[in-house]
């Protein structure tokens, strides 16, 4: 079982749940930027949640399967073409030789396309995910590429539809204080939570650069590199925060003012350039 890539769109990579636990060796977790959507797509075709699937950034994917294949698409809101009753959040039977494609999304940024049996490229360090920063894992999809699929082993799920919430116009992300909140002037956490930020065009699997009220440092010391996590809001000297996503650097040299809750990082991965983001501070006392 396999499929041929006719068009990959702006960027399509293979992603699973990544390589956790290797950060001390300089290897980040990587994996799906929106992990909940990957898990759901896998469940809809009766795969273990950890199977490898496609992460499609801003649509444009067109593929053709060698055999009849069950497929599910989750994540961004987009038109799905090909197969029997195509749509989002449903298992779709795509016939051998038929074109299957995704239009550019109208809401959200990334789609996950799971195929029953999962993508079976060779794993690297226990994962089939592409880490775009560390350059680990399979290459991004290119036209003409053939991608191997495994065989389904689990029974099909009883549900044949998983409704998804619409993406709000303004993304609301919950944050808790980061380790260096006190490197900023008094009131910075409140400031972070009071005004909306805008997603710039600088959006990748590494992170999302935001524009908004400038976060002002009170401490201008040089920060020796320290470990980062997905969801960390790192603030370079210019004062515009960068929200780290799946392929974030293992260590960073700028202070982290706050950290987006892990479940909300999935939503952050769907942020589109120009969209507004509002942070809500969790009621927790910073520091220790």
């Amino acid at each position: 079982m396999k499929f041929e890539v006719l068009a990959p769109g702006p960027q399509t990579t293979v992603q699973d749940l990544g390589r956790p636990g290797l950060a001390a060796l300089g290897v980040g977790r990587a994996g799906a930027a929106d992990r909940a959507s990957l898990r759901l797509a896998n469940r809809l075709v009766g795969n273990p949640e950890s199977h490898a699937a496609l992460e499609v950034t801003f649509g444009g994917l067109r593929v053709r399967f060698s055999e009849d294949t069950w497929v599910a698409v989750t994540g961004a809101v987009c038109v799905v073409r090909g197969g029997r009753s195509p749509g989002l959040g449903v298992p779709i039977l795509v016939r051998a030789g038929e074109d299957f494609s995704l239009d550019a999304p109208s809401q959200g940024l990334r789609n996950y396309v799971a195929m029953r049996g999962g993508i079976e490229v060779t794993p690297v360090l226990g994962s089939r995910s592409t880490d775009t920063l560390a350059k680990l894992g399979p290459p991004a999809l290119t036209p003409g590429m053939t991608v191997p699929l495994g065989r389904g082993t689990l029974p099909f799920p009883a549900a044949d539809l998983a409704p998804q919430c619409a993406f709000p116009d303004e993304l609301v992300l919950h944050v808790t204080p980061g380790p260096r909140w006190d490197w900023f002037v008094t009131g910075t956490l409140a400031q972070l939570a009071s005004a909306p930020f805008q997603v710039t065009s600088d959006v990748s699997r590494v992170g999302v650069r935001l524009a908004g009220p400038t976060l002002v440092r009170a401490n201008d010391a040089e920060l020796p590199p320290e470990a980062a996590v997905p969801g960390a809001l790192q603030v370079p000297p210019a004062g515009d925060p960068i929200l780290f996503l799946a392929d974030h650097p293992v260590t960073g040299g700028y202070p982290v003012v706050a950290v987006v809750d892990e479940p909300d990082v999935d939503l952050a991965a769907q942020a589109r350039p120009g969209q507004h983001v509002r942070f809500v501070l969790r009621n927790q006392k910073p520091g220790a």
């Binding site: 980061g178 380790p179 809750d261 969790r282 520091g287 220790a288």
Partner: peptide, 15 residues
């Protein structure tokens, strides 16, 4: 040694 919160599921020990 200072121990700092790093979000909801991590701590940073600072030396």
């Amino acid at each position: 040694m200072r121990i700092l919160r790093y979000g909801a599921r991590a701590a940073l020990v600072d030396f």
